[in-house]
Computed example of a mutant assay.
Amino acid sequence: MRAPVRSLPAGLDQSFTIAVIEYPAILATLHLVDASAFTVQSVECALLPRIAAEAGASRSFSDFSPGAEAMEPSRLLPASA
């Protein structure tokens, strides 16, 4: 009993289609083309202008009314024994 023989492509177009789908060197080259395109896009993005923003806020309160004691840290702590 013979092993089944793989049939030849019907024409040149079908040969190219099979080669692109199955031949490892062609597949590897297609992946390299995709990777190179990604690298080009990454480098182009680095050349684009950038915008940066920063914000801050603070709030403080001081009681300077007559008769108010100064808020010193030593007066806020309990006396040690």
Rank of each mutant, 00 (worst) to 15 (best):
Y23D: 14
L8D: 02
A35N: 03
A28M: 03
L77Q: 01
E22Q: 08
A46V: 06
E72I: 02
A25W: 09
G56L: 06
S65R: 15
I21C: 12
Q14V: 14
F61A: 05
V20C: 11
D13K: 12
Y23G: 01
E22F: 12
P24M: 07
R6I: 13
I21R: 15
R59E: 12
S7E: 14
Q41C: 06
D63Q: 00
G11E: 08
A52T: 09
A19F: 07
P73E: 01
F64H: 12
L76N: 03
A25E: 10
S65T: 14
I18T: 07
A10R: 13
S74K: 01
F16L: 14
A57G: 13
P24R: 06
A79G: 02
R6P: 03
A19I: 05
P49V: 04
R2M: 08
S65M: 09
G56T: 08
G67M: 01
T17L: 04
V43H: 05
E69G: 15
A57C: 08
F16E: 08
R75G: 02
D34W: 06
A53P: 02
F38P: 01
F64C: 07
S60W: 05
S80C: 06
L76I: 01
M71N: 05
A57I: 11
G56Q: 10
Q14A: 15
S7P: 14
T17A: 13
L48W: 11
L8W: 08
R59Q: 14
A52I: 05
T39A: 15
T39C: 08
V43F: 05
A28V: 07
L12A: 14
D34L: 13
